[in-house]
């Protein structure tokens, strides 16, 4: 796998370049880069509360990033993690608000509903690809927007909750909230689920026949086909599972952070996830590290804006730049022929 990646050289050079660009942007905004970075780091790591918020962001980024990497490893471009995350969150929110059962029953069901919603959404793109040869890039892009519109329609319209103040579902009963890792924080056990998933995926990729088939379909589709791997089935399964991972992530935001589904659930986690997955070299364990790094950016950006007067959007800009710099096909799984 080309993305076995010199784990250090590329990312370090890239990180230095991005820091320089960010510093230049801060100067442009009339702020001192030192003050800017200091405010960013203080906002992200300056105390127990800040660290816990950074880990909340890390968790929210981790699931879609693993989803993106999962599809990429199979040679599929899942640009739709955002939509799958939203659909997962929507299904989890609707299930959670409707379920009046004890937490130990409700929580697994809520998380399952999220994974199922994401899998269905990813599966649509998978079916289009496997059955009709439709380009999954276009399909997932379209599905992102359809997901946002559908979620908005449902929670504002037919499924409008009486206690909702915005475009959101009812609040989940307290017993259905994910247990917290730290008291008085928003950091839930979802982080542990994410770490467990990253470790399992690393194992699946490295040591199982299924992981091998996925990688073979991504790296050398022709050889994989001749070796008897069903490329269509692999594409369908990979898209559905990728969607399930992102959807599960949406469910953890609902059950762990917001305690209801809100249409503003994601500030673009599904797109930032592409940067995270690339920085992590599509390796689940490095993606853990990359998610933390991007978590720092996400959670520190507001404090940077408040205290150093650097617009928080610098972070989005730098994330876009990171994708551009790391999108060389050495890093990205080579595309399957016909993609």
């Amino acid at each position: 796998m080309t993305a076995r990646m010199r784990p250090f050289a590329g990312p370090v050079t890239g990180a230095v370049a991005l820091i320089v660009v960010a510093a230049a942007a801060m100067l442009l905004a009339g702020a001192s880069p030192i003050a800017g970075f200091a405010a960013l780091l203080r906002g992200a790591l300056g105390g127990p509360h800040q660290v816990s918020e950074t880990l909340v962001q890390t968790t929210s980024l981790l699931f879609p990033s693993l989803a993106v990497a999962f599809a990429f490893r199979a040679g599929l471009f899942n640009i739709g993690a955002e939509g799958q995350l939203v659909m997962g969150g929507l299904c989890a929110g609707l299930a959670g608000a409707a379920l009046a059962v004890p937490g130990w029953v409700a929580i697994p069901l809520i998380l399952f509903a999220g994974a199922a919603g994401g899998a269905a959404w990813g599966g649509v793109a998978g079916v289009l690809r496997a059955r009709f040869g439709g380009n999954e890039v276009i399909a997932t892009l379209m599905l992102n927007i359809i997901a946002a519109l559908l979620a908005n329609y449902l929670v504002v319209g037919p499924l409008h909750a009486p206690d909702a103040t915005g475009a959101e579902t009812s609040e989940l009963p307290r017993s259905s909230w994910l247990p917290l890792l730290l008291p008085d924080s928003r950091l839930s056990v979802a982080l542990l689920f994410g770490i467990a998933l990253a470790v399992s995926l690393a194992y699946v990729f490295r040591s199982t026949a299924f992981g091998y088939a996925l990688r073979a379909a991504g790296d050398a589709p022709e050889a994989a086909r001749r070796a008897g791997i069903d490329l269509r089935r692999t594409a369908l399964v990979a898209m559905a599972l990728s969607g399930a991972i992102a959807g599960f992530g949406g469910a953890t935001i609902v059950a762990g952070v917001l305690h209801r589904f809100n249409v503003a659930l994601s500030p673009g986690y599904g797109f930032i996830a592409i940067a995270v997955a690339l920085v992590g070299g599509l390796d689940p364990l490095w993606i853990l590290v990359a998610s933390f790094a991007f978590g720092i950016l996400q959670s520190g950006s507001l404090s940077m804006q408040a205290y150093a007067h650097v617009p928080k959007d610098v972070v989005t800009f730098v994330e876009g730049l990171a994708i551009l710099a790391l999108a060389t096909r050495r890093f990205v799984a080579p595309r399957t022929a016909g993609t």
Partner: peptide, 25 residues
């Protein structure tokens, strides 16, 4: 040798972040 799809996604983020930043500047 940059992948078109991934680069395009990056450019969209770049444009969104850059213009939001530019509004303030």
């Amino acid at each position: 040798g940059v992948d078109q799809i991934v680069a395009g996604t990056g450019l969209n983020l770049l444009a969104a972040g850059g213009t939001a930043f530019g509004l303030v500047v």
